[in-house]
Write a protein that binds this DNA or RNA. Structure first.
Length: 785
DNA sequence: AAGAGATTTATTTTT
DNA sequence: TAAATCTCTT
């Protein structure tokens, strides 16, 4: 298989790989482009290649830099390499682009302060912090937030940063009045960030480059260090990432990039597909390797995916192949509206669970917009099918969690205006301070170049510098500001020596945050529980010797690791509800793609832009392609003939993407409800005789002549004509004091039972896993005493 | 300063 | 529809 003789102990690194994969693993020198179709073993190649470099080539771990887009991908790769290469990979530079950027800035505090004006305690501002600053910048630019929505401003600013334009350069390049306005906002925005000693996500990629420009010796050091650079999902890199990678790889030129232009779905976020398309002209000596064998999906799914993506004009001509079995037909189903659609999905899943022992975690339901998850959730909730929503409100994004984190951030970086405003707005100690009082202190802070926190602390600790007065407040405002100042000073002193969980306790005490939650309202108690959860989260850093460093690392983790998969699994497995975007990189035996309608998938904006700019429409198609190729065994596609959008029903027209699917690959086409509205080509016309109104799905819908398998007769999958609502499992009656047993959490005691709509919520104090709130109808709880 | 009512506006979101 | 933001009132 391999033309290179390998040492016996490394032969295993290429065992079981196909020829192309082996080449990708073994072509270690020079630039390499791997165009990897979905399910073609991309991650395998990346991990085996790194193991190969370490073991066969004797490369030191810290000479390898591997960059991914998500923490999840990085973690997964690290785990797999560890298993392949043993655990001598500590020094490996593997992480997201952004974490690499931070690491680089942190590693060079002196130069960073000197050349970039960023103090070592700088914070990373996330999207919502950024919005905050942008709003302020719009105000300062003397604009009405109605003539320039903050969202648009921040996206334009981000665009400018991604083209590596400073506010001045951007201002110099404007051609429209619109951009002129943006330029003014950008200028203020940049200044506000610097004053807050904070950076945004774009800066994490941009500033390292700036640093290299201003301190070439730093670039030289890293260029020398990283002999081998690997980049995952190269099709999603933007211009700045491209420049960064190119600069780093310049010395050794051992740049290995993997990607799939057909899975580029982030152009709207400045991803530049040209980076991958033009790799070979950037590096004329590049080796190109195409991975086109799909090991993931049935032949039918691969065929459909290929047929769908083939319609895009702007793409490399490639063909995905597979040696897998033909598999089941793809089910296409029209439903009356979004409720029926959701019920159909749930009913099908239950049927598969019953007839084939399908596990819920083998199933994913994918949709274009997050709003679509609501009605699906509702349907899952009333049935007893467990589910989880990926990318819902994340833990660190909850208001009550952010509030406490704001205090932590402020203690770490006293210049953090955004957090300061949050502390004043959310905590009782901030009562009595309005925008005017805060402005006074903000002005003081700007005038005397002092961190904004000190403006408050000045009321209890007069500034050491005699030239710096106490901010000019009087009366009630002064009293209130003094209160804030004294609280900040106390917590600041505490932060010097306390572990993070001790600091948490202090914060809660000093700010009186506990009292902000009404113990008699269950929702508030849940929010308080989240606050306590944060304490547990913080305690993970308690073992660290240096409290300041612990706080720094914790805050960085919060900013950079939006842990999506912290979601508890109940042990039984859950159906995954997920947007098509978030589904990239995942795979499931059974996939439902819902809402295949014009205006939804493809999304209306792409439809509207179609004739002046075909790009968005092609990206929508790629998104559909990504969805299809997540499926291993079975694929269900649904659309509704009427859908409630923005509060009103409008006719649903089946997506144009459906037309690309070969009829022979489809199974069930049936219509159980009268449709209205004018549709595109009627399905009935395309698949003659498919319709069997009122039938029971048995035998219906096999148009490819295939015979049903014994154990997984596809007719079983064929929908019943009327997806009836599913009754909730009768709940047991729980009462406080009972001992219960949970599959995952073990033994515990019921401490409370609260009525919920058609259900009960049971509060259980588990012996090992703390107190949990569980829905009576869903939780696998047994009463044991 | 703070809360109540009115108005506006709707993708996707790795970091 | 529903969330978020704005305006007006107290």
């Amino acid at each position: 298989m391999a033309d290179q003789v390998t040492r016996p102990d490394t032969a295993r690194l290429v065992r079981g790989l196909n020829d192309d994969q082996v080449r990708a693993v073994q072509t270690t020198e020079g630039p390499v482009l791997v165009v990897a179709g979905p399910g073609s073993g991309k991650t395998r190649v990346l991990t085996h290649r790194i193991a190969w470099l370490l073991e066969e080539k004797g490369v030191l771990p810290d000479q390898i830099l591997a960059m991914t887009f998500t923490n999840k991908a990085a973690r997964e790769m690290r785990d797999r390499i560890e298993r392949l290469a043993g655990d001598e990979i500590g020094g490996l530079w593997m992480g997201t682009f952004h974490s690499f950027g931070v690491r680089l800035l942190r590693q060079n505090p002196g130069v960073v302060a000197d050349r970039l004006g960023l103090q070592p305690n700088f914070l990373v501002y996330d999207d919502s912090d950024q919005q905050n600053i942008v709003k302020r910048a719009i105000q300062l630019a003397g604009l009405d937030p109605r003539q320039l929505v903050p969202r648009r401003a921040s996206s334009r600013i981000s665009g400018a940063k991604n083209q590596m334009l400073s506010p001045k350069e951007f201002a110099a390049s404007v051609t429209s009045h619109d951009d002129e306005v943006i330029a003014r906002v950008y200028e203020h925005y940049a200044r506000l960030l610097r004053e807050a000693n904070a950076v945004d996500f774009d800066d994490l990629l941009r500033l390292p480059i700036e640093l290299f420009d201003r301190a070439p010796q730093v670039l030289d050091r890293y260029q020398t260090q990283f002999r081998y650079i690997l980049v995952d999902e190269y099709q999603d890199t933007n211009r700045v990432q491209y420049v960064l990678v190119t600069a780093l790889a310049n010395r050794w030129r051992n740049l290995f990039v993997v990607g799939d232009p057909d899975q580029s779905i982030y152009a709207w976020r400045a991803a530049d597909i040209r980076n991958i398309l033009e790799f070979q002209s950037d590096y004329p000596d590049a080796t190109r390797i195409d991975l086109e064998v799909n090991y993931r999906s049935t032949a039918r799914i691969v065929k459909v995916a290929d047929a769908v993506i083939r319609e895009n004009k702007q793409r490399l001509d490639r063909k995905l192949t597979t040696t897998n079995d033909e598999g089941e037909p793809i089910a296409l189903r029209e439903l009356a509206d979004q409720n029926h659609e959701a019920q159909f999905v749930v009913a099908e899943i239950r049927r598969l669970m019953q007839t084939q022992g399908l596990r819920p975690d083998a199933v994913a339901v994918m949709y274009r917009t997050t709003a679509q998850s609501r009605v699906l959730e509702e349907a899952f909730r009333v049935s007893d099918v467990p589910y989880r929503v990926v990318g819902g409100v994340k833990f660190y994004e909850r208001k009550e969690v952010r509030d406490v984190i704001a205090v932590l951030r402020l203690l770490h970086n006293p210049s953090d205006v955004v957090s300061l405003e949050r502390v004043i707005g959310s905590f009782a100690i901030g009562k009595g301070l309005g925008p005017k009082a805060v402005d006074t202190i903000r002005d003081w802070s700007t005038a005397y170049q002092r961190p904004i926190s000190e403006g408050f602390i000045a009321f209890v600790e007069p500034p050491a510098d005699a030239d710096v007065p106490v901010p000019g407040l009087s009366g009630a405002a002064k009293t209130a500001a003094t209160k804030v100042g004294s609280a900040l000073a106390r917590m600041r002193d505490g932060a010097k020596t306390a572990t993070l969980s001790e600091l948490f306790d202090q914060i809660v005490e000093v700010t009186g945050y506990r009292n902000a939650f009404d113990g008699s309202i269950e929702e508030e108690m849940q929010r308080w529980a989240n606050v306590l959860e944060l304490r547990t989260d913080l305690s993970r850093y308690d073992a660290m010797a240096d409290p300041t460093e612990a706080l720094a690392q914790y805050l960085e983790q919060v900013a950079l690791v939006a842990d999506v998969d912290t979601m508890e699994d109940d042990g039984q497995g859950q159906v995954t509800l997920i947007t098509l975007h978030s589904a990239k990189g995942l795979e499931f035996p059974v996939v439902f793609i819902v809402g295949l309608e014009e205006g939804l998938l493809p999304i209306s904006r792409a439809v509207e832009a179609e004739f002046q700019d075909p790009q968005p429409m092609e990206e929508e198609r790629r998104l559909f392609y990504v969805g299809i190729t997540r499926a291993q065994k079975m694929l269900f596609l649904t659309y509704a003939s009427s859908r409630q959008l923005y509060g009103r029903y409008s006719p649903g027209v089946e997506s144009r993407f459906i037309e690309s699917i070969p009829q022979t690959a489809l199974s069930t086409v049936s219509r159980s409800y009268p449709r209205f509205g004018n549709s595109r080509t009627s399905l009935r016309d395309r698949v003659g005789g498919a319709e069997r109104l009122g039938g029971h799905g048995r035998g219906a819908g096999r148009y490819d002549g295939s015979q049903p398998g014994q154990s997984d007769d596809f007719s079983q999958l064929s929908p019943s004509m009327r997806a009836e609502p599913v009754a909730a499992r009768p709940s047991q009656t729980y009462s406080a004091g009972q001992k219960v047993f949970h599959n995952k959490f073990g033994e515990g005691q019921v401490v409370g039972v609260e009525p919920r709509r058609d259900d009960q919520e049971v509060v259980v104090a588990f012996d090992r896993h703390g107190t949990k709130r569980l829905m009576a109808s869903l939780a696998p709880l047994d009463i044991i005493a």
